[in-house]
Write a protein that binds this DNA or RNA. Structure first.
Length: 578
RNA sequence: CGGGAUGUGGCGCAGCCUGGUAGCGCGCUUGACUGGGGGUCAAGAGGUCGCAGGUUCAAUUCCUGUCAUCCCGACCA
């Protein structure tokens, strides 16, 4: 491609609306243009990178025996009603009402395609002999984001690769899942992305049924917990801690239990301000309804409840925060004054609670707190549980070493679905014993534009983007310094044509501009290799070749420059693929 | 949806408090000089000051409403 024939609107200044590096750089490098909040045009350079990512995904999906197809973005709302997701999605689902003669047809823009593909399989799969099978597509998805942000990382319209596996047995599901998991690892490696597969909250199947693929990045929206020594990694909702049950006997030399007036002071931070204490000294008491029955959950004041863990510890189906009336009934006080001492419902506590000596907590009496609250004397526990989100430094459940807490960008998700959708939509098959069974499903997503945005976010320097060869919009940028020098342009055109013949993606900056200007732009858009043909070099019979992150260019005889650069490109590719 | 901020040429901003002529830098056009890390000089083009209403002789400026965008939070199969 010649620069003058393309649309590459680079910018020297950073648009005021862009906050994080990937957004700023993608705008400045002319990759994207914002149409409205959460909707971006991919300009020629940006689209080339997206296509490169998509092709890598395609190759690896095909290698894993998944089969590509394309489903409509327009979907009948009826399908979502049948799986209950019309309600579940809420405002995220973009609904349309379309006139068809005198009727109104209700439809939605597909946020994902479980319904569509399960319906398809319900009509075409009859026998276990047709299973297993994995199908995929690369297609635009629509999800109304209440708050789009971070440029292209969180938009209402985005490109996604979604794959769905269909199995007759759990063993088949496991095989398909593993094949997708392995394919994902290869995909992200080939894209040059640092990634961490983390355990994620699993659905109906339980166990090891869901992994998210995360790019570690400061601006990531997700939090992941990982242990370097054991390799354990999980998202915050899922992460276990290796904490043990502490001593539940009485503390030595406890303070006496005292009641204190705390009028209208109900939150942890308000109490801390009033009593000049730290949240770590407080016992947070949350009243939940577990299978409709009230239960008090005790946490240290600075910790966050993890409802998944609480549900599992209580072994209940449903768990929700109790309503005001229930809280008042159980505690005998208004909201904000609950505590374990003399509360009118069962209590369950996190491992860290008994260790709080002389704790401060609600007194189950409006406008009143207790100080000097201690285990055994003032409240009793027979065991404790892991009920909270992990925090930096918690021991790893595998190694016991302290774990790290980092932010990440979710680029992929693999998930064992089970039979939720096949049950709802009647996707079943006849097994070898002529018994009807529901197809067992898995689903596997990759955010294609998050691959590109994730790279922009994590791979750049003060001069601009730094693409890995596999995702770079062009592999090589060729810069003739004097576009009005006919002899020089002839040589440049020859190199350009030869590189193209060799299958190298080359961008020739044929603009009439000063050298410095072109160098700055070349660095900004981050093309991995740069060839410069200048007047002096031409007289010496050499071109200059420089890697994006090299300090100095290398002088290469003009006759060898094509072979030399082809070699560099191939080596860079081999490194990512190997 | 709660809280905060901002809308002035393609981009970045000033002007507004204290009403009266719309300004700067970058970019763009033309020419000359230049020519290896975002050049210099000269001459130009480009604006319903987000939109609507109100106050006023007069509104970019004051008032009301509205829309949009961004940030923090809630939400995110």
């Amino acid at each position: 491609m010649r620069w003058t024939k393309s649309l590459i609107p680079t910018m020297k200044e950073t648009p005021a609306d862009a906050e994080i590096p990937s957004h700023q750089l993608m705008l400045r490098a002319g990759l994207i243009h914002q149409l409205m909040a959460g909707a971006y045009t991919y300009l020629p350079l940006g689209w080339r990178s997206i296509q490169k990512a998509a092709n890598i995904i395609r190759e690896e999906m095909d290698r894993a025996d998944a089969v590509e197809m394309l489903m409509p973005a327009l979907q009948p709302i009826d399908l979502f009603d049948r799986t209950g997701r019309n309600e579940d999605f809420g405002s995220v689902l973009i609904r349309l009402e379309v006139a068809r003669g005198d009727r109104k047809v209700q439809m939605a823009l597909g946020p994902t395609h479980e319904e569509v593909i399960t319906d398809l399989m319900a009509r075409h799969i009859n026998s276990y002999r047709q299973l297993p099978i994995t199908l995929y597509q690369i297609q635009t998805k629509f999800r109304n984001e209440e708050r789009p942000r971070f440029g292209v990382l969180r938009t209402s319209e985005f490109l996604m690769k979604d794959a769905y596996s269909f199995a007759s047995t759990l063993e088949q599901l496991d095989e398909s899942y593993q094949a997708m998991y392995d394919a994902y690892c290869r995909i992200f490696k080939r894209c040059g992305l640092p990634y961490i597969p983390v355990e994620a909250e699993s659905g109906p199947i339980g166990g090891d049924a869901s992994h998210e693929f995360m790019i570690p990045a400061e601006n990531g929206e997700d939090q992941i917990v990982y242990c370097e020594s054991s390799g354990y990694a999980a998202n915050l909702e899922r992460a276990e801690t290796g904490r043990k049950q502490p001593d539940l006997s009485a503390a030595e030399n406890p303070q006496e239990l005292r009641e204190i007036d705390t009028p209208k002071v109900g939150t942890i931070s308000e109490v801390c301000t009033l009593l000049k204490c730290q949240p770590e000294q407080m016992i947070k008491t949350l009243i939940y309804l577990a299978d409709e029955k009230p239960v008090a959950v005790l946490l240290r004041g600075d910790h966050e409840a993890n409802e998944g863990k609480i549900r599992r510890a209580l072994n209940v189906e449903s768990l929700e925060m109790a309503d005001e009336a229930t809280i008042e009934k159980v505690t005998g006080a208004k909201i904000g004054f609950a505590g374990p001492v003399g509360i009118g419902c069962p209590i369950i506590a996190d491992h860290d609670v008994p260790a709080i000596k002389d704790a401060i907590t609600g007194a189950n009496k409006t406008d009143t707190h207790y100080t000097g609250v201690n285990i055994a004397r003032d409240y009793q526990l027979t065991e404790t549980f892991d009920l909270r989100n992990a925090v930096q430094g918690d021991p790893c459940p595998k190694s016991g070493e302290p774990m790290n807490l980092v932010h990440g960008i979710e680029v992929g998700h693999v998930f064992k679905l089970g039979t939720k959708y096949s049950d709802a939509l009647g996707a079943d098959f006849l097994n070898e014993h002529e018994k009807r069974e529901s197809i067992i499903m898995g689903c596997y997503g990759i955010g294609v534009n998050r691959i590109v945005a994730g790279l922009a976010e994590t791979s750049h320097d003060e001069n601009g983007l730094i693409w890995p060869i596999s995702i770079a919009p062009f592999e090589v940028i060729l810069i003739p310094l004097k576009t009005n020098d006919e002899e020089l342009m002839q040589v440049a055109n020859k190199v350009y044509a030869e590189l193209q013949d060799q299958g190298v993606d080359v961008l020739m900056d044929d603009r009439k501009a000063r050298p410095g200007f072109k160098f700055k732009d070349a660095d900004l858009i981050g093309i991995p290799y740069r060839i410069v043909i200048g007047g002096k070099g031409l007289q010496e019979g050499i071109a200059e070749v420089k890697g994006r992150t090299d300090d100095q260019p290398e002088k290469i005889p003009l006759d060898d420059v094509v072979a030399h650069v082809c070699n560099l490109v191939q080596k860079a590719k081999d490194e990512l693929n190997g």
